[in-house]
Amino acid sequence: MIEAHQITKRFLTTKAIEGIDLRIDPGKIYGIIGENGSGKSTLLKLLSGLLHPSKGSITINGEPVTRQSASTIAYMTDFDRFYPYFKVSELVSFYESQFVDFNKNKAEDILDFLAIDHEQKLKHLSKGNLGRVKLAVTVAREAPFLLLDEPLSGLDPMVRESIVKGIIQFVDFDRQSLVITTHEIRDIEPLLDEVIIIHEGKKLDQQRVDDIRMKEQLDVEGWLKRRTR
């Protein structure tokens, strides 16, 4: 379980995140939604231990989160900073050398599922295929928590669909939790158990997707619009 208590993150004088309480339970899929600049990516970095909160605390299974938490958290950034001259297969070997929980066979299975040529150089991959490769090497880690920052951002509908299906096929929901930031809400909604709205750095609401549909008779996008109006 990841638990955040009253976390605040300041960059110089601007507050990016303010007073957020949050709990990530095992075996569930969470969506963090909100407008651009709302603070959702900052929140994800804080949960992953890549950023340190200015105030408040974050624990993973009771232990404080640090940069060393990377052993229990697989984090996928929305930047592409892979070494461009690597082949896909070399990237897989590199990941294997960096993470003890990296499952090389699983990575290869995911790449096959997503129809990626293992011998292609990264610099020759299309944006969509690079997105698929990023997902493959992240999900191939058997870490209890997978945090994905905007996994569908800027990708075309076919690629988005294959990424969603790759997540369903390969994430082990008996043992892994997933936290996804996104503004492609429609594509991601059927994948989510719960959604968290971040608005102007604060947590505005958190609900189960089924409850939103049942009680509010709205899909998540409609609910987000109503709550942030």
Binding site: E189, R213, M214, Q217, L218
Partner: peptide, 13 residues
Amino acid sequence: MGIDFQPDRPIYQ
């Protein structure tokens, strides 16, 4: 994307 779900009822239903 897969199935078009109606917005006003839970997906499981």
